[in-house]
Each structure stands twice: as structure tokens, then as C-alpha cells.
Amino acid sequence: MERSSATFALILLSLCAAGCATTAARTARDVNIQFSSPTKRVLLVGPAVELSEVTTSGEEEVRADWTAAAGEFIVKDISAHFAATQTELVIANKPSTPREVQLVKLQGAVERSILDHAYSGGRPLKSKKGGTFDWTLGPGADALRQRYGADYALFVGVHDSYTSTGRAVLIATTVLFLGVPAPGGRQYGLASLVDLRTGNVIWFNELSTRHGDLRTEAEAQRSVNDLLKDIPL
């Protein structure tokens, strides 16, 4: 019994060593932030937020009330971040024209490619050897600049799940009988900053943690700070 507790503690520790490292930001080379007008304007696309509860059997059940609350906290915290540098934030909740829809879908595709090829565990591309981070949506992104008068766009998506009581009981059971915990809730977020003149992704961040709580204002602020860590704006 003693031995298995010690093993469990070790496993937890090793899980934490891997899982508690929360962010992994990447920045393109030679980033030179320049605004074309004295009103420094940044477009926020989304944020796409979804909060859910992990059921006993491990499925994620979307919670509308938590999602709505977290969405408000996140917008507020991002606005505060830019207000601190006298940058005006314009929010585009939903793309309205087919062109914008395509750009948002393209951003999603580029984001998946970045995760697939530029992050640990991914397959590096031969064309991107040497550690340069050069990803782009292409000059078509200028359509968003024309529409909103913003030189940069920040795309944000956050997914957060919480262990239900039933799941907690199940996790305790797996620890007792198998010595390892079944997975519970998890927070995951992605943010990319795009120069709308060129379409280039100039900064990208992945946040992944088993801690944090976007349902409360203070914790949400901490998560947004982590998500925007090292953003060059």
C-alpha cells in the first residue's frame, strides 16, 4: 500500500512536469510592429469559447452559462491588455461576408498546420527547417483590414472543461484500483496574431493546462495573461 501511494505520487509528479508547463509561444523572425494610422487598431476575431463539464464516462458536456460568462471575461481581459498600450480593439464576433468566412476558415486551417508541423510532437516540414516560424494566410487577409481598418488581427479560441462530481468519483476509483488517474478537466487555448497587410502569422501561442478556471474573473485574467504571453503588441 505504501509503495503504491509513492508510485502514484511519482506518476502525478511526472504528469505535472509535462502537463503543468502551460504555454508555448512562437514568434516570426524580424517582427516589426507598425501601424498605418495614429489610431492603432487591432481586430479581435472571436473569441471562440467553449466551456464544458466532463461527465462520469468522460464525455464533455457544453455548458452555456459558463461559456457566456467566460466569453465576457476573456473579451474584457484582452481589451484591457490592449488598452494598456493605447491600442484600440475592434471585435468581430461573427464573420458576415463569404470572403470573411473563408478567411476565418483559412486561419483555422493554418492554425492546425502550425500545430501539426511547428509544435512538439508534430512532423516538421522540410520547407521549414532551421527553426524559422513563417506561416501566412496570404495577402487576401487584407480584406479584413479594409473592412475594419485594423492593421493586425488577433484570433483567439479557448476550450475549457471541468471535472464533474461523478467524474471525480471515477477518477478516485481508477487511482484506487489501477494506480493512475483517468483524465479530468483541461484548459486549452490558441491565439495567433496576423499582420493583415501581408497575412503573415507573426506570433502564435498554445496554452494547455489542467488548472485554471475561466468561470471566475481572477482566474480568467490569469489564463488570458498566459495566452497573450510574449505577444509583440
Binding site: T55, T56, S57, V169, L170
Partner: peptide
């Protein structure tokens, strides 16, 4: 589904 699967998940493990 949630209720039956939750109960059965635990029973399945045990």
C-alpha cells in the same frame, strides 16, 4: 445516455 453510461462506466471498470 449520460446517466446510464456514467453508471455503467464505473461498473465496467470495477
Amino acid at each position: 445516455r449520460r446517466n446510464i453510461e456514467g453508471s455503467m462506466h464505473l461498473l465496467w471498470m470495477l
